[in-house]
Amino acid sequence: MAFVTTSDGTEIYYKDWGPRDAQPIVFHHGWPLSADDWDAQMLFFLANGYRVIAHDRRGHGRSSQVGTGHDMDHYASDTDALVQHLDLHDAIHIGHSTGGGQAARYVAQYGEPQGRVAKIVLVAAVPPLMVQTEGNPDGTPISVFDGFREALAANRAEFFQAVASGPFYGYNRDGVDVSEPVVANWWRQGMTGSALAHYEGIKAFSETDQTEDLKAISVPALVLQGDDDQVVPYKDASLKQAELLSDSTLKIYEGYPHGMLTTHADVINPDILAFIKQ
């Protein structure tokens, strides 16, 4: 198992597959998952000649279950520690959901200033800001996220089961076939991580204003979103991302859920590949 140790002593687990001289793709996973959520993409892009790297966010998966640093600033600095450790250049960063926020902050504050980033892909990502505020009246009310915290603290196992079998993959929609193995894999990844990291991570993904991160990114960006995303409503996220990014391409998929990287990998993977090859 491969780990990199950050400046505050946190051990970040990572996978690194493929030729060392190939263009690297770095994957940033969603809450409360792990690098394993990128299996379908890792294998696809590896087969297409890329070096593929995915890591477990601090407190998630196999990384250290530390009691501090569960915020976007630490997520981004942890990514920088990994990139520096592997000395990656000309990298493509792909982030899903919370991982989209992590990727955006890393690229804006580390990757682009260091000249290490070629492109960024945001998939059903949380920026610029999820929670409803005076300046963001169309956001999700804080009471929703308070409900997440309450449910997680009361019974994390039941809460995670409900999320995976319901809104995350759109399995609560009429006529949709539920994949029990997919639900079980989501639950497995979540339960491997730290309850504290997951609890505090709700604030990180919902209350972090990343408007300035998006404005600072100048490399080509691809924004992907499903219009039946019940976790990150596309009108409050992807449309604003496309407006704030200086060089963006927006693609919205009709009927796709939040977890579309799993349910529709056969469509989305080639679309990302086409963008990378442009």
Rank of each mutant, 00 (worst) to 15 (best):
L152V: 12
I142Q: 15
P137R: 11
V121I: 12
G147T: 10
Q114F: 10
V123N: 10
A151C: 04
A157E: 14
E134H: 11
G147K: 11
P128N: 07
V121N: 06
L152P: 05
F145Y: 10
Q161R: 12
R149H: 02
F159V: 02
P127C: 12
V117G: 01
P128M: 14
V126G: 06
E134V: 13
G135C: 13
A124N: 14
N155Y: 07
G139E: 04
N155Q: 08
N136H: 15
V117F: 04
G115W: 06
A154I: 02
N136W: 10
P128S: 04
P128G: 12
E112Y: 06
D138I: 07
P137Q: 08
E134W: 07
E134R: 13
Q132S: 11
I120R: 01
L129D: 04
G135N: 13
G111S: 02
D146E: 15
V131I: 05
F148C: 01
K119I: 09
E134Y: 11
N155G: 12
V126R: 01
I120C: 07
P113R: 02
E112I: 06
R116Q: 02
R156T: 07
V126C: 13
F148N: 03
V121H: 00
P128V: 11
G135A: 13
A151N: 13
V126I: 15
E158Q: 15
P113N: 08
A118C: 10
R156I: 02
E112G: 03
G115P: 03
A162T: 05
A125E: 06
Q132P: 02
V131T: 08
L152Y: 00
R116D: 00
T133H: 09
A162S: 12
G147I: 04
Q114T: 05
Q114D: 06
P141M: 08
P113A: 08
L152W: 05
F160Y: 09
M130S: 07
V144D: 05
F160G: 01
F159I: 02
Q161T: 15
V121A: 04
A153E: 10
R149C: 05
L122P: 01
S143I: 00
N136L: 09
P127M: 09
P141S: 01
R116A: 01
F145C: 03
A157G: 04
L152M: 14
M130T: 01
Q132A: 05
V126A: 12
D146N: 15
G135V: 12
A118H: 10
Q132D: 05
S143A: 14
P113D: 08
I120V: 12
V131E: 11
S143C: 00
A124G: 14
P127E: 14
D138F: 09
G135S: 14
Q114L: 15
G111L: 03
G139T: 01
P128Y: 07
V144P: 05
Q132R: 10
P141H: 03
G115I: 03
K119R: 15
F148G: 04
P141T: 12
K119E: 14
E112V: 03
E112R: 00
G139Y: 11
P113M: 07
V123E: 02
